[in-house]
C-alpha cells in the first residue's frame, strides 16, 4: 500500500511497480517481525489463558497484509519478473543466462558433457 511506501525511491536495480511493492513489503515485514513473533508466542503457549491466546490470534490476523512474510516474493533484479528466479543470483533464468554468457557472474561457466 502506498502509505508504507518510502517517499524517495532507494532501489538501485530494475524498478517497476511490482518491485517497489515487494520492496515495501519486505521493509514493513522487517519492521513488524518482532510484534508478529510475540503474538505467535502467545498463541502457541498453552499455559496462558485461552482468552489471551484468542485475543492474540485475533490481533495477529487483523494486522496488515504487508506485515506478513508470505506476501514477499523473490523478484528478478534485472527485469522484475516473479517467476523462474534463481535464488543464488536473484535473476530470472534468461537474465542469468545472458549475464553468465557475458561473463559478468564471477565463477559461472558454461558446462558441457
Amino acid at each position: 500500500m502506498s502509505m508504507f511506501r518510502a517517499k524517495k525511491l532507494d532501489l538501485g536495480c530494475f524498478v517497476n511497480i511490482k518491485v517497489i511493492r515487494d520492496h515495501t513489503k519486505r521493509k514493513v515485514f522487517a519492521e513488524h517481525e518482532t510484534e508478529r513473533q510475540a503474538l505467535r508466542y502467545i498463541i502457541r503457549n498453552l499455559s496462558l489463558p485461552a482468552r489471551t491466546r484468542a485475543q492474540a490470534a485475533l490481533q495477529l490476523t487483523s494486522m496488515h497484509c504487508y506485515t506478513r512474510p508470505t506476501q514477499i516474493r523473490n523478484r528478478c533484479i534485472e527485469g522484475g519478473k516473479g517467476r523462474g528466479v534463481l535464488r543464488d543470483f536473484k535473476m530470472t533464468r534468461y537474465n542469468f543466462r545472458m549475464n553468465a554468457l557475458a561473463g559478468s557472474l564471477p565463477g559461472v561457466k558454461k558446462a558441457s558433457w
Partner: peptide, 20 residues
C-alpha cells in the same frame, strides 16, 4: 510453551536487504 517461536531467528533484515 511456544518456546520454539522464541528460538527462531529474525529473518527481517535478511529479507529486507534483497534488492540492491
Amino acid at each position: 510453551l511456544g518456546n520454539k517461536i522464541l528460538r527462531q531467528r529474525l529473518k527481517g533484515p535478511a529479507l529486507a536487504s534483497y534488492y540492491p
